[in-house]
Design a protein around this nucleic acid. Sequence first.
DNA 1: GCCTCATTGACAGTATGCTGTCGTATTGAC
DNA 2: GTCAATACGACAGCATACTGTCAATGAGGC
Lengths: 149, 149
Amino acid sequence: MKDTEALSRTALGVFQLNGQFLAASERLARPAGLTAAWWQVLGAVLHEPLPVAGIARRMGITRQSVQRVADRLVAEGLAEYAPNPAHRRAKLVAPTAKGRAAVDRITPGHADLAAQLAERLGEAELTETVRVLERLSEIMHSLETVSER
Amino acid sequence: MKDTEALSRTALGVFQLNGQFLAASERLARPAGLTAAWWQVLGAVLHEPLPVAGIARRMGITRQSVQRVADRLVAEGLAEYAPNPAHRRAKLVAPTAKGRAAVDRITPGHADLAAQLAERLGEAELTETVRVLERLSEIMHSLETVSER
DNA sequence: GCCTCATTGACAGTATGCTGTCGTATTGAC
DNA sequence: GTCAATACGACAGCATACTGTCAATGAGGC
């Protein structure tokens, strides 16, 4: 396979998978009154409240995107801004009881999907998939930083 | 690894990669005056003109998204609508000379990136990556159609 | 302690994708 | 040949991501 063809097919596969996982996440989250993005942000602060910029770093997207979702979550009563002892401006995003309850309602469906995926792929291939994705992401990150300089 | 963890890491990896490949595509396309989406649509009709709905099917996204990009491409003189002998309404999207030239200007950068990726990953791992991505997408597609019914 | 610089949130603007609805063209069953 | 179902484009509205800019906050060098 030529390198350019490999890159094209890799990118195409990633774009396609992005759409598929996004759609799957929306399907899982909708019954709980969440969107995929809301779920993801809430999930990021379930165990420890984080400032908006911190969430963004962890998710690998921009602060601004997270900010809009966080504001929306607070407006819907699913999360709240808590004072940050370490930084007066950077308030901490923390889930409310309602927010936790919403996430909890998604968990069974999430487990179902995970089980189906594991069944179709098999244990070894599933592990291999995770490995390949994380390795590729690592490489892409290193290529980005190279071309930035 | 628990199945739910594998699914979460898989989805996270896919979302992250989507951002990375999108950013890489934008970087490649920008000097040629294209965006990633414009490049992708133009690329789809380089060898054979297609109606908007046909492009959408091939790319795995909705007609509406492609329609907006196609209208924009025509407005910019990068593509044109040609009569479709088989369907009066569904005009064919075809690249103009300017559109072809723009895509041609991206090709070297694309090849460079492909070479870098191949160098970092190695031939075997690159092939494996393509295989894993396409297999995963196939599985996700089969799961979607199952849960639709 | 002071000043510079990075971090952070706020606000504005844009691109891309989605859903939903409508009217028209084409296709297929009969 | 007729009519219902499907495919297609047009238009509207929304969610998510991005970039760019600004002011406020905090951290570190001096």
